[in-house]
Write a protein that binds this DNA or RNA. Structure first.
Length: 236
DNA sequence: CGGAACGTGAAGGAGCCGCT
DNA sequence: AGCGGCTCCTTCACGTTCCG
């Protein structure tokens, strides 16, 4: 994933950024946040299901990170360190409250999300748009219903495109566990989505009404022209 | 071709739950 | 309280794919 367009030029290096932050340079803090906001928000959102709480978790994570800047040893990158703090914050919040799955608010949030499908050049038909939205809703719903440990791994691996090792480091679990959780999460999602999509397929590629009538008429017309009767087709 | 990363299946263990 | 069955999770081992 690419970091979003920066308003400020990127710091010459991480150590330089760190040095400036430790010196209390507010521009350095701002630069770091701009580099990581989107990624951290998506991490928190993936774990918490809640936009506002995810935002709070990211803010809290920043505050915690900046307060403990001196303890950053540079063993991982700043981005990884920040991500670990935000993930811990999000998981902590999740433990404090029992997860509440609110499908309606999720659907609302999806509708207001920035286009995440690459916004293809071809204009989509209303049927395609509706199907796309339904598929997206089904996927989001399925991800949200994954058990928390699986969801955290899935979000990091599949959505944030982190490696197995990075995910393991971030969550503080062995790589093998990451692999299995990711595998199981995928399997669970496949099962859930196959059920969800069974109904969606019925409405996919709609071919009814005038288009259907036109095609039927066209084919029948061509068959009549070559002298092929319906009974001939049926026995073929 | 070989190594690294990843995906997958199987086995064993831990925890939960119902029953006695 | 103790026991047994069940489910879920972790770990291990091995196959597959990708890349230099």
């Amino acid at each position: 994933m690419q970091v979003q367009t920066q308003e400020h030029p990127p710091a010459s290096g991480e150590s330089e950024l760190l040095r400036r932050m430790r010196g209390g340079d507010s521009h350095a803090f701002a630069a770091l946040m701009r580099q990581n906001n989107r990624r951290l928000y998506r991490l928190a959102r993936g774990i918490l299901h809640d936009e506002h709480e995810a935002e709070d978790a990211v803010q809290e994570g920043y505050l915690r990170a900046f307060a403990h800047l001196a303890s950053f040893k540079g063993e991982a990158t700043l981005a990884t360190w920040l991500a670990r703090i935000v993930v811990n914050e999000a998981l902590g919040r999740l433990r404090r409250r029992r997860p509440v799955s609110d499908i309606n608010s999720l659907a609302d949030s999806l509708a207001s999300d920035a286009p995440a499908d690459g916004t293809g050049a071809l204009p989509a038909s209303p049927e395609q748009l509706a199907a796309r939205q339904e598929i997206r809703r089904a996927i989001e719903h399925a991800v949200d219903t994954l058990p928390t440990p699986f969801r955290a791994v899935f979000v990091l691996r599949a959505i944030e495109q982190l490696s197995t090792k990075e995910t393991a480091d971030l969550l503080g679990i062995p790589e093998e566990t990451v692999k299995t959780r990711f595998h199981r999460a995928n399997r669970l999602l496949r099962e859930m989505l196959s059920e969800e999509f069974a109904s969606i397929w019925d409405n996919a590629f709609p071919f009814a009404g005038s288009r259907c009538d036109r095609l039927v008429a066209h084919v029948l017309d061509r068959l009549a022209r070559v002298g092929v009767g319906l009974e001939t087709i049926g026995s073929a």
